[in-house]
């Protein structure tokens, strides 16, 4: 029995060593219809460019993406600003390689149900006090972290829990929009690309819910690679991965993210995010 177990363990180990597959994931915050199918195309593209077997691993939450990265179950991931910071802290040596051309000046929208009577303004109005607000996922950069940061800036570092009548975490940008549209919550904080896409598709009734404020720009999404990639996949692998993204020009592939193009990024770019997260107690 013991021999059998040993043999099985060895077989598994051998299998792991012989064919090292390069795996990547992406945080689930955009349209996920046919996600596996779309990302399988990205995997094919990378396989062609990198000359190793590439596999896409779907995950359900921001934290699952970070955990998979930390545990080396994936070596590359498309993170949000905060999840990227979390991941790079947990895996020393890992680097942010690229971001979307939109990501160096990303934004969040505060949206409001029409019954609040709020109009689009240059600053968050005082009237939002004692209304109810829903963020997106707790660790979303655009759905929680930066909106809360700018909210605190505007209202003298007020605690949202005390300032608003009720604070919720819908878990997802699409859901935030749906819930504010239904009037379940008065206000919502949402990723601007998701909002724009929903408006463009006619999935949202702008008579009922409208943007009342856009946050200042901040850096967001990024591709992060583990530091030991060169060692494991060959010299210059990191550069080749970066080049593969920067040179990606197939609109169909780019639409998966959805980005116009990818531009270089580095860890230092996300220092502001890290600072804000530390202030809010999301990192320690």
């Amino acid at each position: 029995m013991r021999h059998l177990a040993l043999a099985a363990a060895l077989a598994l180990f051998a299998q792991g060593a012989a064919a090292e597959t390069f795996r990547f994931t992406a945080i689930p915050d955009e349209d996920q219809a046919r996600l596996v199918e779309r990302f399988a195309k990205v995997a094919d593209y990378l396989e062609e460019r990198l000359g190793v077997e590439v596999e896409y691993v779907p995950v359900k939450s921001y934290s699952a993406a970070v955990t998979a990265f930390r545990n080396d179950q994936v070596q590359l991931a498309w993170f949000g600003g905060l999840s990227g910071v979390q991941a790079r802290r947990l895996v020393p040596g890992s680097v942010a390689l690229a971001q979307g051309s939109e990501d160096d000046a990303f934004m969040s929208y505060f949206i409001a149900h029409h019954s609040t009577g709020l109009e689009r303004a240059d600053a968050l109005p005082d009237a939002i006090e004692d209304m109810s607000l829903t963020f997106g996922s707790r660790t979303s950069t655009s759905g929680r972290l930066m909106p809360e940061h700018f909210f605190r800036q505007r209202f003298d570092d007020a605690d949202p829990e005390a300032f608003f009548s009720r604070v919720g975490y819908s878990g997802d940008h699409s859901r935030t929009i749906a819930l504010v549209e239904a009037g379940t919550w008065d206000l919502g904080a949402v990723n601007y690309t998701v909002w724009e896409a929903a408006v463009a598709d006619g999935r949202v009734d702008t008579d009922r819910v409208e943007v009342i404020w856009a946050t200042p720009p901040y850096p967001d999404y990024n591709w992060t690679l583990r530091g030991d990639a060169d060692e494991r996949f060959g010299e210059g692998f990191t550069d080749r991965v970066q080049a593969a993204f920067l040179e990606m020009d197939d609109p169909e592939l780019l639409a998966s993210f959805p980005r116009e193009a990818f531009i270089p990024a580095d860890n230092a770019l996300y220092a502001p995010i890290e600072e804000v997260a530390e202030e809010l107690g999301l990192l320690r």
Partner: peptide
């Protein structure tokens, strides 16, 4: 995140 029926169900419902 385990790829049972719930995986697709939750995603579709959430979005």
């Amino acid at each position: 995140g385990l790829p049972t029926l719930g995986f697709h169900l939750e995603t579709a419902f959430r979005e």
